[in-house]
């Protein structure tokens, strides 16, 4: 995966490990699950924890 996605592209499936504050627990999230659940997704990238976001 070296190509950068552009608007209009299909997002390839990927998985992310997460911390889920609502559960106070670790989890995992994937595009395929979000698609299966028919969900809109907003990805919000930021530089680093313990800084101003």
């Amino acid at each position: 995966m070296s190509e950068i996605l552009r608007v209009g592209d299909a997002v390839p499936d990927f998985k992310l490990e997460t911390f889920e504050p609502s559960k106070g627990d670790f989890g995992e999230i994937s595009i395929s699950t979000l698609k299966a659940d028919k969900k809109w997704t907003i990805l919000f990238f930021y530089p680093a924890d313990f800084t101003f976001v």
């Binding site: 996605l5 997002v11 979000l34």
Partner: peptide
């Protein structure tokens, strides 16, 4: 990197926001 927000010099992410529809298309 896939979304083009990875800064190779710092190892940090730029402030990127992306909306993906339920079919998995980047809008």
């Amino acid at each position: 990197r896939m979304f083009g927000v990875y800064d190779e010099n710092t190892g940090l992410d730029l402030r990127g926001t992306f909306i993906i529809n339920p079919e998995g298309k980047l809008l």
